[in-house]
Nucleic acid binder design. Structure first.
Lengths: 339, 339
DNA sequence: ATGTGACTGACAACCGATTGCCAAAAGTTT
DNA sequence: AAACTTTTGGCAATCGGTTGTCAGTCACAT
């Protein structure tokens, strides 16, 4: 009975519906996207036909003619870093809820890959969320002029951002260590290109100064468990009794290395991580860490981006959102060893 | 000097190049995609112009006219499960190498979400890789008829698949436990809808039968650390001295719960996990587990899919690939307790 | 010089929508 | 009933490419 006997083969188009209802394709388009522009009765017929023919709009075509792709690019430096898992989950959830598709790109910690991905996405997506961007301020700002961007953990004036406030948590961590009697503390730095790492060190150094304790800086180290081994050795050599690591991966790597070297945690050395990623609660000993609301950060980033894409639909246009963090104390920190 | 003074604003199109070189748009298209179809000199001019104008093909338009989207959908039941991280990384790497874009979708362990994602992707992607599909054989087969699909850890005749051979590793794990003196072993089952879980139990039950040891089945349990607590309690209650868990998440959850209940691992109870995910090596105690080449599985899945998409470019059309696994012994298994 | 075929490049239709503009239809007002 | 306004729906252009078809060019063989 169908006009298109091959409907099982090829997905129905707007033209099929038009033919089926005896109206023009443009009318169908309007009925579906601008309902008030079409007579109620016609619209009902069209909607019914659409349902019967199992119509799904072709996103490619829609994107081409309307300019909107319905996709958002999410750029992360390293997909396998558990920190980004939670972020990705947050963005994915929120994007799906808003009817957007997520394009996930691993930039491999490279500014070049990141830049080329952005250029690519400029036509393939309506907006971009970029985590821990490796791009310089200038380049990032220039990119933001071409396509809506929300940065995560990257502060550049003029670029909307979600910042996880680890610097202030770093001071908390320091106070925690001080209260346990530690006086010589090391900051185990992350990648040299990481702005977060830099900001954390600045905060830590200032806090240490104010409280009159020694703060060493070690690194930079890659944010992986592997490089945690080198970090552990450096920490032992530096003679400190406690370390605040750039992130949990490094901290966990340190835990493993210290254990292998027979150095007890926390009896001989206390370790504080950052992010509270998957695994931080069940490593040995469980890691004291600065817990970040990562997934929430992802959701907020999406909200900010979408608010920018659809200015009409209310919502404050905050251009900077700071997410609070707090110290979660577990077993990897303890009283300073008595010399 | 440019013909398009606004080139900084709007990305260059094929028509801009055509105008710039004084040729037809179709010639530009051919020069770029079918080089041998165009005179060498003309092609050179076009390529130079393309470079000068900083031309990037519009993927939407390309998709619309050619029918190929250059994207591959990757469906996973739960993005936050570390098992899939590695899989995603494998697919991402291989897809990028081949010039494809990865569309990542979290199906939330729901067959409905999975089915609708597939329907959606039918026009938005050239092919689909689906991990641990929750769909019934019929539905999956029907979907595979509409769009090229490669399944991971899901065996349906007629659907190309990459299977991680955990069932045989399960027997290895059992032998390992038997060699440690265990005679009453439990299998901690995964989700009821998981084919892998089913196959593993079948293999384990058969092996246990052959070796004359008791094998209990517990569960089903959700594949999360949370449900590991319930699993641990069930295991203790069942009176077994060793457990083989559906995956590492459950196993790690069991470790935590057992520790909280004061039951020592491996002295009182041995635990074997599956997958060797991130964290399995640094939990407490480190987990004995069946190591799966997950990332490699992702790469193989992509290769199989691409071979299907571009039949010309050689490559055997294997339609089923079994990935070997092996037992990695760590600290969570030990001699059976003397009663 | 003419025929043949390989090579080039242009024209135009098409992919599946969106959208500005216009005319027909319907409803209102005087 | 004529004039005017508001709906309502259709035409056709457009987005940026791809691709089938065809005509023109040129070289070579006859």
């Amino acid at each position: 009975m169908s006009i298109r006997p091959d409907q099982a083969e090829r997905p129905a188009t707007i033209h099929d519906i038009a033919a089926f209802c005896g109206v023009a394709a443009s009318t169908v388009s309007r009925a579906l996207s601008t309902p008030e522009r079409v007579n109620v009765r016609t619209r009902a017929r069209i909607e019914e036909a659409a349902a019967r023919l199992n119509y799904t709009p072709n996103s490619q075509a829609k994107a081409l003619s309307s300019g909107r792709t319905g996709a958002v690019g999410v750029l992360v430096p390293d997909i396998t870093n558990p920190f980004y898992f939670d972020l990705i989950r947050g963005t994915q959830l929120q994007l799906k809820a808003a009817g957007y598709t997520q394009l996930l790109v691993d930039t491999e910690e490279s500014d070049e890959v990141e830049a080329s991905a952005m250029e690519q996405l400029r036509k393939g997506a309506d907006g971009i969320i970029v985590a821990a961007s490796r791009l310089s301020d200038d380049v990032l700002l220039a990119a933001a002029a071409k396509i809506p961007i929300v940065a995560v953990n990257r502060d550049v004036p003029g670029v909307p951002a979600v910042i996880i406030d680890t610097p202030s948590a770093t001071s908390q961590a320091l106070d925690h260590l001080i209260s346990l009697g530690h006086t010589r503390v090391a900051y185990v730095a992350g990648p040299a290109t990481s702005q977060s790492s830099e900001r954390r060190w600045t905060a830590l150094a200032a806090a240490a100064e104010a409280r009159g304790v020694e703060a060493h800086r070690l690194g930079p180290f890659a944010p992986t468990t592997q490089s945690g081994a080198a970090a552990a050795d450096a920490a032992v050599h530096s003679g400190v009794s406690a370390c605040i690591a750039f992130n949990d991966l490094i901290a966990i790597g340190m835990l493993q290395r210290l254990s292998a070297r027979g150095i007890r945690v926390p009896e001989d050395m206390s370790i504080v991580g950052c992010d509270d990623i998957f695994g931080a609660d069940f490593c040995n000993p469980p890691l004291t860490t600065m817990a970040s609301p990562i997934e929430q950060a992802g959701r907020v980033a999406v909200s900010m981006l979408l608010a920018r894409l659809n200015p009409l639909a209310g919502g404050g246009r905050r251009s900077r959102s700071v997410m609070p963090t707090h110290l979660t104390v577990r077993g990897s920190t303890g009283p300073a060893p008595k010399v």
